[in-house]
Design a protein around this nucleic acid. Structure first.
Length: 258
DNA sequence: CCGCGGGCCTGAGAGC
DNA sequence: TGCTCTCAGGCCCGCG
């Protein structure tokens, strides 16, 4: 991807969740890719111009890459909203049926103050994210542990599946108040230590299995989408339950998650 | 500041 | 077959 050049950018509609910025295609054309990075759920492509292409897949967004010139490309799907024609020959297509994804071009100057990016919590797999950091972020929070994990300011990048998965792995109930894993002084309790380790383990596991949601579809999660099925924790005879928290499904085992 | 509800979109599947 | 309903991996906005 490094040194790849944007030859042509095709927008097949004016917006995703938000409108594309003015002159989006023009500003990309001719730029080369300096670096590809990620922050939380945001994809960042640094360009030779100094701008950063900031992208989010939302719920249903996906990229596909095809080698070869565009002329050889098959008929576009109705949800293929953006096509990047790269040099050397590669066609990168963004498909997103629900259009909850978005793309933006941010200048070097505007990057530090970016509304969404600047509020993100620590990267879960970085050393910055430890039990003390999690405890601090949960301190004083009246909301549930599950909802706290979905808050990208607490820790960046956890979604609805892995919030449930991590809590099961840590043996913590999603219904617990987030503040109960931190002491009043902010020192981490055993729960924070276990949850931090569980989050890291769940993510590493997912990445090793192929990373994406699509790639994990075939494998059985520990609790996600397993309502009514037996708990997989050793020696636990519990049954997975599904509840709704803040309008979103949570799966957990009431027997081994306290 | 926090917590919560609604809205944004389309598609898949269940039930009638 | 077709309608209606619910649910889906995320985030933003406005309210209290």
């Amino acid at each position: 991807m490094q040194d790849a050049r944007f030859v042509r950018v095709l927008l097949r509609r004016p917006d995703l969740r938000t409108p594309f910025p003015r002159k989006f295609a023009e500003r990309l054309r001719g730029q080369t890719v300096v670096r590809v990075a990620r922050r939380g759920k945001y994809l960042l492509v640094e360009l030779s111009s100094g701008d950063t292409l900031v992208m989010h897949l939302g719920m249903s967004g996906a990229f596909s890459v095809a080698a070869g010139p565009s002329a050889e490309r098959a008929e576009a799907d109705r949800h293929d909203h953006v096509v990047f024609e790269m040099s050397p020959h590669a066609i990168v297509t963004f498909n997103d049926p629900r259009r909850f994804g978005f793309m933006d071009l941010v200048t070097r100057k505007a990057m530090p103050g970016h509304a969404a990016l600047s509020k993100l919590g620590p990267e879960p797999l970085s050393p910055d994210f430890d039990a003390a950091a999690l405890a601090r972020a949960c301190k004083g929070r009246k909301t549930s542990l599950k909802v706290a994990l979905l808050d990208q300011r607490v820790v960046a990048g956890i979604g609805n599946i892995y919030a449930s998965e991590a809590l099961h792995r840590a043996g913590l109930s999603p219904r617990r108040k987030a503040s109960t894993i931190a002491t009043r002084t902010g020192a981490p309790l055993a729960g924070a230590v276990r949850l931090t380790a569980a989050i890291k383990a769940v993510l590493i596991d997912a990445i090793e299995r192929g990373g994406s949601y699509a790639a994990t579809r075939g494998h059985r999660f520990r609790v996600y989408e397993r309502e009514g099925e037996p708990c997989l924790t050793k020696k636990c005879r519990g049954t997975i339950k599904r509840i709704t928290q803040m309008g979103r499904s949570t799966f957990f085992c009431p027997t081994c998650q306290k």
